[in-house]
Structures are given as structure tokens and as C-alpha cells.
Amino acid sequence: MVATTDQNIDQVLISILEKVSDPEIPVLSIMDMGVVRSALIINGNVKVEITPTYSGCPAMDVIGDDIKKALKHAGYESKVDLILHPAWTTDWITPRGRKALEDYGIAPPLNPTADKEVLLEEKRMVTCPNCKSTKTVVVSQFGSTACKALFKCEDCKEPFDYFKCL
């Protein structure tokens, strides 16, 4: 089998799927999250493949149901499969998705090297989504969900979530 990072999504389905959001982060479309790996119309029915961000992500079942609902609303019957390969990575979050995260108060992921430096060596590189200061420090390597770490800003004193690299 050949590993591919390419998405295979039928053009007519994009606008429907863009309306489905991550239940934990309502401002973020699942398309911008990069969890939809393929969506094809086969004999009038839609076959969708999604991949989990984290193995235990409880949002996946809800996302699967929401996709079916949205497609049904648009007149399609659908089947949603969960695939693990290739494994999801934070690199698949689109620039628009990163902006949506930041506007929502979640600092988007840095690159993997910087990620290690901020989480382990407490380097100050994460930008506070509230006041844009980089005088920020990790409070806990695990935050409100498995994909996030908890940070605080030493300028505006606000705590915030940082989306970890995966």
C-alpha cells in the first residue's frame, strides 16, 4: 500500500463538509482541521474517510454523525469510515484553521522542535492569543483535552490553551 498525504475530496462536497465543525472547537471546520481524508460520490451515495487527531479523541463519533447529518440535509446518503493511515498531523491544519484557532483563544501549534522547547525547556515562543505577547509559560503539558497544553501569559495574566504538535 502506498502512503499518501493527499486528500481526495469531490468538489461538490467541499462546501457541505466545510459547514461541519469540531464539536470541541465550534469555530473550526473539520475541513480546516484536516481530518477529512476523502469524500467521494459513488452511485449517488457518499463515502467519507476521516482520521482521528488523537486515538482516544471522543469528538470523532460526533464528527462522524454530524457529517452524515450535513450530507443527508444536502440530499446524500453516506457512510463514514475511520482510518488511521496516514496518521493525522498538525501540519494538516490549514492557515485559515490556524487563524480560527487563534481567534478562538487557542494558540496554534509551532513546529516540532519549538514545540519541545516550549513544553520542556519553558522557552517563551508561544504567542498569547489574547494580547499577542510571547512572555508565555507552560503550566501543564496536558490541558483541557489530550491535544492541548495549558499555558499562561505573564503580561495579560490570562491562561490559554496551546495546540500541541502531533
Binding site: 482521528p52 486515538s55 479523541c57 496536558f142 483535552t145 489530550a146
Partner: peptide, 12 residues
Amino acid sequence: IACTNISLDLFG
């Protein structure tokens, strides 16, 4: 929260 998040990863 960290321990339960790790637990969730493992269950997944």
C-alpha cells in the same frame, strides 16, 4: 487532567 488525558490516549 494529565493522568486522565494519558488514560484517554491509552483507551483510544
